[in-house]
């Protein structure tokens, strides 16, 4: 099956959907691996929100495309190079600090992005954005709180959180390399960038953490379907069942 995405608005929506589903999958890997029962439930709940968000976004994209494909087909039948998520969210759950740092950097991005999209001229995108902002509020509360705790906790927790941030920051540059599609779809891209940096700096500052200058990896942009080495492994697990057993039903 060859999945095609013709319409430019559909492509912009697919980028959001891909970022949601890949982060959802990463967080789902934490289910039953949380450090406490409450934390396990929290991460699984945030994962569920992201899967739900992705599902609604794929449906919107599918409608723009004339319902040629279903959300499941977009998710399970595209290869690595046909995915358009930001590389930040495909980074692995190396340790709990990575999970939290990745979530914080994503939540701040998602919060401003969906705030802007809640006034989108596409009514479905606007309606969904208003809805997901309520969910992002809870996720952000969680990642913000843990960033404070890890940053201000012990020397060990601070060091590990800093290490996670230093790794993940490498994947931030591409977020703001806006292309023509972004400039058409996102109401104010430059504000998205400005808000992201000021909010990240504020939270890291209050947590005794730093935004160190890091060299971005020599990789091409997620908008062209380029990924880090982790993406293929993630997909191989996520897509195995529907590809091995194409008619499998829940």
């Amino acid at each position: 099956m060859k999945i095609t995405i013709e319409n430019k608005d559909a492509m912009s929506v697919i980028r959001l959907a891909d970022t949601s589903v890949i982060l959802a999958q990463r967080l789902a890997e934490m289910c039953s691996n949380g450090l406490t029962l409450e934390e396990d439930i929290a991460l699984s709940n945030i994962s569920l929100d992201l899967f739900g968000r992705a599902d609604e976004l794929y449906k919107i994209a599918a409608r723009i495309e004339g319902n040629k494909f279903t959300p499941d087909e977009y998710v399970f039948h595209r290869n690595e190079r046909e995915y358009y998520n930001i590389k930040l969210v495909e980074q692995p759950n190396h340790d709990f600090a990575w999970v939290i740092a990745r979530q914080l950097l994503h939540d701040i991005y998602a919060k401003e992005l969906f705030t802007q999209l809640s006034t989108s001229s596409n009514h479905e995108v606007a309606g969904l954005s208003q809805k997901v902002l309520k969910e992002i509020k809870y996720s952000y509360m969680h990642s913000h709180d843990w960033t404070n705790r890890l940053g201000l906790g012990t020397a060990e927790s601070n060091e590990r959180m800093q290490r996670a941030l230093d790794h993940l920051m490498k994947y931030v540059d591409e977020l703001f390399n806006f292309d023509e599609l972004d400039k058409k779809f996102i109401p104010d891209p430059e504000k998205l960038k400005a808000v992201w940096f000021s909010e990240v700096d504020k939270i890291l500052g209050e947590s005794n953490l730093k935004r160190n200058a890091v060299a971005p990896p020599s990789m091409r942009d997620f908008r062209e379907g380029f990924h880090s080495e982790h993406m293929g492994h993630l997909l191989s697990i996520m897509q195995f069942l529907p590809r091995a057993y194409p008619d499998a039903k829940w």
Binding site: E38, A42, S44, N45, G52, Y138, H142
Partner: peptide, 13 residues
């Protein structure tokens, strides 16, 4: 609040 996330997506503990 014990945890913002509970037994279902709509509930907190």
């Amino acid at each position: 609040m014990v945890s913002a996330f509970g037994s279902t997506p709509c509930q907190s503990l």
